[in-house]
Simulated scan of single mutants.
Amino acid sequence: MNKSILLALGAIVVAGVAYVALAPGQSADTADAAPPAEGAPMVEVALPGSLSSTAQMGETAFNAVCADCHGVNAAGKMGFGPPLIHKIYEPSHHGDMAFQIAVQNGVRSHHWSFGNMPPQEGLTQSDVMAITAYVRELQRENGIE
């Protein structure tokens, strides 16, 4: 092999090792960070300057029913439930109807290892629509669309 091919292969190997060592979304400073403590938020959430009136109602319902597992501002809660401010829950993957179905029927664990989510009692379809509006506004503020 000639020298330029060897240099190109070497560069590819170095780039591959760097990619694996610093997975997307990590920096050298966070690559060695310890996981969050039990009950701690799993992600940092930027809050919008204001919420629509529907999202405000959703925030109230979310705090009353969902935050015990999904954390304050849907940041997740280590050991309890996943963050909803996460690319997995973007509208193109988990549409708004997925929230209705999850509340009504529960959800089998499939993206995270928190166990199954049971159906949630006491929420109307309107409540879930408002919660969904709240989560979607938080997601948009955090670049998830």
Rank of each mutant, 00 (worst) to 15 (best):
F99G: 03
Q100Y: 09
S92C: 01
S50L: 06
M42K: 07
N73P: 05
A74G: 11
G58V: 00
A55H: 02
G95I: 04
A67M: 14
P41T: 03
L47S: 04
G25D: 00
P82K: 09
M78W: 02
S27W: 06
A61F: 05
A34P: 06
T60I: 15
A33F: 02
A34K: 15
E90G: 01
G95R: 06
E44Y: 00
P82S: 14
G39Y: 07
L84M: 03
G25I: 01
S53T: 14
L47I: 15
T30I: 08
A75N: 06
L84N: 01
A34C: 08
M57V: 11
S27K: 11
E44V: 05
P48E: 08
E59D: 04
Q26A: 05
A31Q: 05
P82T: 09
F80W: 08
D32V: 12
P41V: 02
P48C: 12
G71M: 03
A64I: 09
A61V: 15
P48V: 13
V72W: 07
A46Q: 14
S52I: 02
D32L: 14
T54F: 00
P36Y: 01
A61P: 03
A55L: 08
M97P: 01
A55S: 02
S52C: 03
S27I: 14
Q26V: 05
Q100M: 15
A33V: 10
K77Y: 03
E90H: 01
E59G: 09
F62S: 00
P48W: 06
C69T: 12
C69G: 10
S53A: 15
G71H: 05
M57S: 14
E44N: 11
F62Q: 02
E38I: 12
D29G: 04
V43Q: 05
L47W: 10
M42S: 06
G58H: 04
V45R: 01
D32T: 15
A34Y: 07
G49H: 08
Q56H: 07
Q56G: 05
